[in-house]
């Protein structure tokens, strides 16, 4: 395109080329610049490696925390004890009534399983474990009620749903009262909610810092190429043409940083998993560090690329236009 000379033709208009071919040329030109930017990173690895490492590590920290929190979430979801409901039955309910009740509620979708602990069994257990066995013998009658231990199914294991289930159980004719041991579960959930928010906040702060760091690296790149940019402007390069290689550099920083984060997170989790499993074995807990899902891996890479591009875009839009031949 020539602004001043109508009859003058330039590169892309030289031949009567079709739209498809123009598009193809556009993409090959971009592809070439993209590869060229990659080549430059490879050729001057020292400066690039530091920025890529910062990018990678800044994703590693929230990424690892994310995996740990996700696993804790899984534990709390898996732990049925958490939402074990003790249902105390009325004294006057007969054995037949109780069998009826069990039969009825066993079919509820909310209930995974249930155990019946008869008053006699409970008293026997108390006698054995408490050390007050002789005292029990002085009692005229068994003061303990019959108890049903109800374990909610996975979907109804949260404190809120377990509470609803409890209310529903109390409605039953044979039920005197019920007790849900959810305090520690509620606490765990609250802690997990805080942990989730903390991870998000740490991630956000880190991401802002990283965008600024990438921006600074690209700014230095731009000033290192000052003379080249001046010459390019003298021979008619537009700002966007000059900006493109720097944006591709930002893209590559992000891409390589993301790959590095994958590797470091894998190493960290592998290293931590043996320790954590040792500790949790003491508590009879099974802690299987869930690896990252495909979509998590992809979003980590996406975030990393976004940060590389964003940092680069900030610098490029500010500094390329400032360099003008005089």
């Amino acid at each position: 395109m020539s602004l001043l000379f109508k009859s003058r033709q330039s590169g892309a208009q030289q031949h009567q080329i079709g739209l498809l071919q123009k598009l193809l040329m556009f993409f090959t030109s971009h592809f070439r610049q993209c590869i060229a930017s990659f080549g430059e990173i490879i050729r001057t690895p020292l400066a690039s490696v530091m920025t890529i490492a910062v990018l990678g590590l800044s994703i590693t920290l929230p990424g690892t925390l994310y995996v740990l929190v996700k696993n804790l979430n899984n534990i709390s979801a898996d732990t049925q004890q958490a939402a074990e409901i003790s249902v105390f039955l009325k004294q006057q309910a007969s054995d037949a009534d109780i069998q009826q009740l069990i039969k009825r509620i066993r079919t509820w979708p909310e209930i995974e399983s249930l155990t019946f602990v008869s008053a006699d069994d409970a008293l026997e257990e108390f006698r054995r474990l408490s050390g007050f066995g002789d005292a029990v013998d002085y009692l005229d009658s068994n003061p303990l009620p019959n108890v049903l231990l109800v374990y909610p199914s996975d979907k109804f294991g949260t404190p809120a749903t377990a509470k609803t289930l409890l209310d529903k159980l109390i409605q039953e004719r044979e039920v005197e009262s019920g007790k849900l041991d959810i305090e520690w579960l509620e606490r765990l959930h609250a802690i997990l909610a805080i942990a989730n928010e903390l991870v998000t906040m740490i991630a956000l702060l880190l991401f802002i810092a990283v965008i600024l760091i990438v921006g600074n690296t690209i700014r230095l790149n731009i000033f290192n190429k000052r003379s080249e940019i001046l010459v390019m402007k003298l021979v008619g390069a537009t700002d966007s043409f000059i900006q493109r290689p720097f944006l591709y550099t930002g893209f590559w920083y992000g891409f390589l940083g993301g790959i590095m984060a994958w590797i470091t997170i894998a190493i960290l989790l592998w290293w931590m998993s043996s320790n954590i499993e040792d500790i949790l074995a003491l508590y009879n807990q099974d802690f299987d560090l869930a690896g990252m899902s495909f979509s998590t891996l992809m979003s980590m890479l996406g975030i990393s690329i976004f940060m590389g591009l964003a940092g680069s875009a900030i610098s490029v839009s500010r500094y390329v236009s400032q360099i003008e031949p005089r």
């Binding site: 020539s2 602004l3 001043l4 000379f5 402007k233 003298l234 008619g236 390069a237 537009t238």
Partner: peptide, 29 residues
């Protein structure tokens, strides 16, 4: 015949494509 005061900052690059410039210090890369 084109008044250069009407050329915006964006279009400067296109004007320079119509002008071959040579400098005392070459300005080579």
């Amino acid at each position: 015949g084109h008044d250069l005061s009407r050329i915006t900052r964006r279009d400067v690059a296109y004007v320079r494509r119509d002008i071959g410039m040579i400098f005392q210090n070459h300005q080579l890369l």
